[in-house]
């Protein structure tokens, strides 16, 4: 378990995939959204965001989200 709870606001997501790009680069040294531990799927008016089992909630995706669709909250136990 990582340091953060990552909260998602799908209505703010634009589908830019910056989160997937940076996640894949951090863990594979390759920009490859298909291997990212966060997966964003958008359609006309809808968006879904989910995390794969490999996600350790490091929060790098949040740091690179420009649109306020992701936020990280410090875990209760560590406060």
């Amino acid at each position: 378990m990582g340091n953060y709870d990552i909260q998602v606001s799908t209505e703010s997501c634009t589908g830019c995939l910056r989160c997937q790009l940076v996640c894949s680069d951090l863990y594979t040294e390759t920009f490859n959204p298909s291997t990212a531990r966060i997966q964003v799927v958008t359609s006309s008016a809808d968006c879904s965001i989910h995390f794969t089992e490999a996600c350790n909630e490091c929060g790098v995706c949040v740091d690179h989200c420009f649109h306020g669709a992701l936020q990280k909250m410090k875990r209760e136990a560590e406060k």
Partner: peptide, 19 residues
């Protein structure tokens, strides 16, 4: 305005979904 849409990697997102 329903949603703003971005091309991949764009921090602005200038495309639109409107209703």
């Amino acid at each position: 305005k329903k949603r703003r849409v971005a091309c991949v990697s764009c921090p602005i997102g200038c495309k639109d979904v409107v209703e």
